[in-house]
Computed example of a mutant assay.
Amino acid sequence: MRPFIASPSNARRTRSREGFMTFSPRKTPTTSQAPQGSPMLEWTGERYLPWIKDAAIAYEHLHRYVLAARLAEGKRVLDLASGEGYGANILAAAALSVVGLEIDDAAVQHARKKYKRENLEFVTGSVTSIPLREEHSFDLAVCFEAIEHVEDREKLVSEAKRMLKPDGLLVVSTPNKDVYRHESAGENPFHVRELDFEEFRSLLRQFFKNTGFLGQRIYANSTVWQIGNAHDARIDEFVIARDTAEFEFATNDRRVPLYFIGLASDAALGKFPGSVLIDCSNELLRQIQEALAWRERQSADRAETIASLEKAVAWRQTQLEDSLEAIASLRRVAGELETGNADLTARLRDATHQLGLIHASRGWQLILRLRRIRNKLKALVTFRVPG
């Protein structure tokens, strides 16, 4: 499953008793609501939920189950790690009976309430220790996007084989490690270990005599079909690629799987043709267009914000220039005042010096004596005059 939802920073990592890496995330809003009448499973990113509005994830998961349903007709089927239950429900439309096995009891309770068919059963249990009594009782076992979540992958495959009839078939998918890690936005926190093709093939060949492999990936395409003849299954595929200025026809090996789908059995394997899942509502294109429109709105908002900020910067620049001019003017005034102050200080110093010279002169001393004589005479005159 794609890794861009749920981040390790938003979750607490724990290890379940079956070896799955699980998280207890903080509450994360979903893009849409679960159907009425069924329990709401929280969108954590660990499992696909049908009401999540991500068309690409839906295409990948639904296509695998639709492909498996063509192999399930009239058979007893075991869906390992059945999650929300949508896949087991798809299988049950064609199969004789289906058992969905899921470790999360909340998901099991949800599935039992939402998907009600007489030939469909949901059981709580581990894919590495399947709690079903009847061994070798299933014609087909499917296990989509679970191996990379489990520490003991060999135990998972051996348990699947234990539940299959001698000629039973296992259909299992997993991300292509080399491509998945390169193209994903970040590490998927729910994956214990991803596999490359050789590791995946070696794992299946440990337990089954015959193996076959399909690749899965979402590609842009043009579809041509016969109008009025919906049951014509023959499809010719043409591969193109634009490596230069123009599209050119390319060989099929240019298609690089994002996911591997393995088919394993002790019986001989027939031919498994590829298939195409067609979304006639063009939901993925609509979502891309919505995303582009949103980005355009964001770009316009940012451009408007930038223009506003540029105006504010220009205004600030004007204010700064005015302030600098005022500062320069004040500095000129301060300089003039400082010059005037220095002149006054010099003049005061000269006056003080002149006054000192006067006070030290004989003339000033004579004046002081005359003032003392005058004061004494005034005192005598005042004393003799009768009151």
Rank of each mutant, 00 (worst) to 15 (best):
R2W: 15
A6W: 05
A6G: 15
P8C: 05
R12Y: 14
R15I: 10
S16M: 09
F20H: 07
T22P: 03
T22M: 11
S24D: 15
P25D: 02
T28E: 03
T28S: 09
S32N: 12
Q33R: 09
Q33Y: 07
P35T: 04
S38F: 10
E42Y: 11
T44P: 03
G45P: 03
G45H: 02
R47P: 03
K53G: 07
A55C: 07
A55V: 03
I57A: 12
Y59K: 07
R64F: 12
Y65G: 08
Y65I: 02
V66L: 05
A69E: 10
R70C: 01
L71K: 14
D79T: 05
L80R: 12
G83S: 04
Y86D: 00
G87L: 08
L91T: 02
A93Y: 01
I103N: 10
Q109T: 13
A111H: 04
Y115T: 05
R117T: 04
V123D: 03
V127K: 01
V127R: 02
H136W: 01
S137R: 03
L140A: 14
L140I: 14
V142L: 08
F144A: 10
D152P: 04
L156M: 13
S158Q: 07
L164D: 03
K165V: 08
L169A: 12
L169M: 08
T174P: 11
R181I: 14
H182I: 09
E183G: 00
N188V: 07
P189I: 09
V192D: 02
F200P: 00
F200M: 02
Q206R: 15
F208E: 07
K209P: 07
K209E: 15
T211V: 10
G212P: 03
L214G: 08
Q216F: 08
Q216Y: 09
G228V: 11
N229H: 15
R234S: 00
D236E: 10
E237M: 11
R242P: 11
A245F: 15
A245S: 10
E246Q: 12
E246R: 06
E248R: 13
F249V: 05
A250I: 13
T251H: 11
T251G: 13
N252C: 09
D253I: 08
R255D: 11
P257W: 01
F260I: 04
I261R: 00
D266K: 03
A268V: 08
L269I: 10
L269Q: 10
L269T: 01
F272I: 13
P273H: 09
G274L: 06
G274E: 06
S281Q: 05
E283F: 10
L284H: 12
R286W: 01
I288T: 05
Q289R: 15
E290V: 04
E290W: 06
A293L: 14
W294Q: 14
W294H: 14
A300N: 01
A303N: 10
E304C: 09
E304F: 05
T305V: 01
T305N: 08
S308K: 03
A312H: 06
W315N: 07
T318L: 06
L324P: 00
L324G: 00
E325H: 09
E325C: 03
A326W: 15
A326C: 02
A328C: 02
S329A: 06
R331I: 13
E336S: 10
E336D: 01
D343K: 11
L348I: 09
D350C: 04
A351N: 09
H359G: 15
H359F: 00
H359D: 05
A360L: 10
G363I: 12
L366K: 14
R371Q: 09
R372P: 05
R372A: 15
L377A: 09
L380Y: 15
